[in-house]
Design a protein around this nucleic acid. Structure first.
Lengths: 120, 120
DNA sequence: TCTACGTTTCAATAATAATTGAGATACTGC
DNA sequence: GCAGTATCTCAATTATTATTGAAACGTAGA
């Protein structure tokens, strides 16, 4: 369960244009992730600057990396994202479902497009 | 529906210790909100500095203010928080329910204490 | 082993954010 | 109006973050 210090770090990490793009690209890419060079290209940032931002995201626990040959592959850390959502909802809901109830609808629209829910 | 520029602003706003505390205090306080002085006391920040941080949160749309006598009352903007949660889930879920599915559980635990979920 | 490639590290700089204290503004009650 | 309270604005300072380019590192293939 995420504490508020971790949450601050995660929010700060996502509160930067390039870094949010990086996370979005990695989430979209899935568990296979993307090599640093590809990621830099997609996001439109220099390799040096990408390196700075991915380090920041790693520090916040939102992404992870592994080496594959001469490439370094980054991928999203899904549980950290889940935890962050959970933190937001937990804190927002403190006796006030008016915040989370609309989010339920977004969730339903998002995760159950066909009416066929995550049967995981 | 929140776009990524707004989301960056919201995340950046929450990515600071005092500001996250402010939002938490205001969410907990409910729609009645809290006067600036009270808020400063709860969060442990000088009135000048509080003023800086609440302005930042307002700019991101996460809180709002109204005057009541000589006090200025701040309160959480619930829809903005909902939108942010929705944005996170929408972006995270892109074909990958493994992120959101655990969040569903948090949501259910959080918002549906009676087992009566949003059947919208 | 030499060379090329992908990526990182480092140091310098530029840009932005946070904190402080003094003074200004807005309201209240006398 | 005057005195007092609550809060804000402003300017100065400090601290942190982002960006850049050059150089170093690790890996792969000839």
């Amino acid at each position: 369960m995420m504490d508020s210090t971790q949450a601050v770090a995660a929010f700060a990490a996502l509160g930067q244009e390039y870094r949010l793009s990086i996370v979005r690209a990695l989430v979209t890419a899935g568990p296979d992730g993307l090599a640093a060079g590809v990621l830099a290209g997609e996001v439109g940032v220099s390799s040096t600057n990408l390196s700075f931002h991915v380090k920041e995201l790693s520090r916040a626990g939102l992404i992870q990396s592994r080496r594959d040959g001469r490439s370094i592959i980054y991928s999203a850390t899904y549980p950290a994202l889940s935890d962050l959502i959970a933190f937001l909802m937990r804190d927002c809901c403190q006796g006030r479902p008016e915040v989370c109830t609309p989010a339920v609808e977004a969730l339903v629209a998002c995760c159950t497009p066909t009416g066929d829910v995550a049967h995981a």
